[in-house]
């Protein structure tokens, strides 16, 4: 950063002569120190996983959950400054509930990502505020089935005016990542935080494109997510961590369309496999060394 010390990094909303906003870049640095967070969009659902670094032995195990539910079918995991994440989540919940009161239906993932992107971006514009020190991953499942509008009477037309457009598939899993600049994209697999490079490398090896027919299932996704968090933790091995995982499926799936914690039994199984996979890699490396 050649322009450091030239004064363009002291205030938010001020560009440097070469067109950069340093405050936003510093916010990204804050994210890069956080525990790794990932999201995987599978064929039939989404998994969110977090490497929660244990900051004190005095904290109760498995308490102080960091992955939040913002609406029945939507979860948010973030990495970076925790209080900024809390505020992000609270705003996302407000957006979700105000959408519900306006449209009498849950907010679609794309709209939530759009609104949160706009909100985060606004924090790069003004002198009186600083950008968000988090990157957030929003994951969920938009219902494909007809959702009941509470106490609705009659069903209306199936297709055409007042009904659906024929042949158009509605709903499905979604995954978005919102960065401190306000930039957001939809992803098949998203990773952020300290171990993001290793995590991204692992995510790229997975089959996540739903059009190629081999896209991994939600259960596989849970196991991969656990493994990837363990792989991403390799670089900061000296620190203890807890694995936090949530998932969301279709109404017909294991979570019945809701965003909820991965059941303890499944999580422990995924962790066991993750540890085994890591040990396997170590053995391979040792074998190579011997050769």
């Amino acid at each position: 950063m050649t322009s450091i010390g030239t004064g363009y990094d002291l205030s938010n909303s001020v560009f440097s002569p070469d067109g950069r906003n340093f405050q936003v870049e510093y916010a990204v640095k804050a994210v890069e120190n956080g525990g790794t967070a990932i999201g995987i969009r599978c064929k039939d659902g989404v998994v969110l996983a977090l490497e929660k670094l244990v900051t004190s032995k005095l904290l109760k195990k498995d308490a102080n959950k960091r992955i939040a539910t913002v609406d029945r079918n939507t979860g948010v995991v973030h990495s970076g400054l925790l209080p900024d994440g809390r505020h992000f989540i609270s705003r996302a919940r407000d957006e979700a509930s105000s959408w519900r009161s306006t449209y009498k239906a849950p907010i679609p993932g794309s709209s939530l990502a759009n609104r949160m992107g706009a909100y985060v971006q606004a924090y790069t514009l003004y002198n009186s505020v600083r950008p968000f020190g988090i990157t957030a991953i929003i994951g969920g499942y938009d219902a494909e089935t007809e959702l009941s509008v509470d106490g609705a009477v009659g069903n209306g037309p199936k297709v055409g005016a007042g009904g659906k457009t024929q042949w158009v598939k509605e709903g499905g899993p979604f995954l978005y990542m919102v960065e401190p600049s306000g930039l957001y994209w939809g992803y098949y697999g998203a990773a952020t935080g300290k171990g993001r490079q290793a995590a991204k490398a692992e995510l790229e090896k997975l089959k996540l494109d739903p059009t190629d027919g081999e896209c991994i299932s939600l259960e596989e996704g849970v196991k991969e997510a656990a493994r990837i968090i363990y792989v991403a933790h390799e670089d900061s091995k000296d620190k203890e961590f807890e694995l936090e995982m949530t998932w969301v499926s279709a109404v017909s799936g294991p979570t019945k369309g809701k965003h909820e914690e991965v059941p303890k039994a499944l999580r422990e199984e995924a962790e066991r496999l993750a540890k085994k996979a890591l040990e396997g890699e170590d053995e391979d490396e040792e074998e190579k060394m011997e050769e």
Binding site: K65, I67, A68, T69, V70, D71, R72, G75, R93, A96, S97, R100, S101, K104, D150, G151, T246, P254, T255, K256, K258, H259, E260, E261, P263
Partner: peptide, 21 residues
């Protein structure tokens, strides 16, 4: 019903735990 729906959503904010748990 809408009131109860929003109450249910809020009830599940604190920890993402579902009926299946």
């Amino acid at each position: 019903d809408r009131l109860l729906n929003s109450l249910d959503v809020e009830e599940n904010y604190t920890s993402p735990t579902g009926d299946a748990k």
